[in-house]
Design a protein around this nucleic acid. Structure first.
Length: 145
DNA sequence: GTTCTAACA
DNA sequence: TGTTAGAA
């Protein structure tokens, strides 16, 4: 199997217990159970034992909510923000679909390069090929003629 | 030793 | 939310 897919499966199947999540993230077990009761998070379904395990995406969500709480947001507001993040990520992924297939390194030491952003249609219907450039001038977009 | 539910400060 | 009790 393709190594990329293998890694994807590995990450997808990572599960962490409530004790470790609580200790590492800094959220009490009581909170995690309460958030679940509120419907904000969901432990891995296929666990008849009653012991909670969380997958990676849930772990990310827990970390995000914790960060928002630390910033002073209420639990409800924190969860609503996490929803926004998911939607925004989806929009961004859609926009940049297949855009990172080709990244040309122009300076390895300084991490300069050109990202092939692909073809984009402007509002007037014309198609252009864009490249995202990172170099000594900063970061900017370039139209590939 | 860890996690669960339920109840109460 | 924290904490505690009693069971799994």
């Amino acid at each position: 199997m393709e190594s990329k897919k293998i890694l994807h499966n590995v990450f997808q199947n990572v599960e962490v217990g409530i004790g470790e999540v609580s200790k590492v993230v800094g959220v009490s077990q009581r909170q995690l159970r309460y958030w679940e009761e509120k419907g904000y998070i969901k432990p891995v379904a296929d666990d008849k034992s009653g012991v909670r395990r969380y997958n990676l995406s849930t772990l990310y969500l827990i970390v995000f909510i914790k960060e928002q709480l630390d910033k002073g947001f209420t639990l409800a507001a924190a969860f609503e923000r996490s929803r926004d993040v998911r939607v925004k990520s989806k929009i961004a992924r859609k926009f940049f679909e297949h855009s990172f297939n080709d990244v040309k390194i122009t300076n390895s030491d300084k991490a300069y390069g050109e990202i092939d952003l692909g073809d984009f249609q402007t509002q007037d219907g014309k198609m252009y090929h864009f490249k995202g450039v990172v170099d000594e001038r900063g970061r900017y977009v370039k139209i590939d003629e």
